[in-house]
Amino acid sequence: MNRVTKPFLIQAGTVLLCMMIWEAIVESRLLFEGIVPSIFEIMKAAWLQISTGFIFPHLLVTMYEAFVGFALAACLGIAIGIALGVEPFLRRVFEPLILYFAATPKIILYPIFLMMLGAKFESKMAMAGVSAFFPIVINATVAAAGIDRIFIKVAKSVGASSFQTFTRVYLPSTLLPVFTGMRLGMGAAFVGAILGELKVSNAGLGFIIIQAFNHFRIPEMYASILLTFFLAASVNFAMTLMSARLRRFAY
């Protein structure tokens, strides 16, 4: 048994134990009857949602909302973050504001988005956008502030323009930490969009969760939540893989 496998066995054992306790509670019919379905029932419902193709249009809607919001947040967050990181005075003025707002619940802004952008996709995109913006801008600021000044001197010494300095020095040297911010932002964008859907919507993963909840279709509700978690984990995993590939270009 080496250092890696032992913790892994404990982790697997824990997950298994939790599932067994869950099943035991369901089978015993003593607690939570009718509101906690058996794991098999949940799996069956999840399989049904996939095999009938029922979930895919909703999945696409949520991904669309999350990606658009995320893309806007990334452009804005990276640009602002690098500006703040490069200019210490600006950073001292605005970073506290950003940190304060980062610690507020973004969903509270949702009714404003609903009124201004309507109850369709746009308001969820805005939710995804504000949710993703903060982790991205915070990471970009720290990354840009941490650039070794010598690299900028090198660029200047060979007569690079400021645009060239931005694309050839600032972007590559902040790539990894900014990408970490983007990974966190992507997760936040999904949560933001889905929370919006849970509140007011007529499509998306959040919509099918809350529909199942309202009509007391309990196994379906669990299944949709499970699939949503699976999606979030996959996106996170994919971005982690990407950042491992980027590591080659950074340090």
């Binding site: 404990i10 982790q11 824990t14 889905i194 969760i209 809350i210 939540i225 984990a233």
Partner: peptide, 28 residues
């Protein structure tokens, strides 16, 4: 040993969209 094992589990849990579990909490 448990520390190493559960650090990772808790970290993964923390990175997941926990708040989306709220309908379950309401049901129960």
């Amino acid at each position: 040993l448990f520390g190493r094992a559960y650090d990772e589990l808790l970290g993964a849990l923390f990175a997941s969209p926990l708040i989306l579990l709220y309908p379950i909490s309401l049901v129960i």
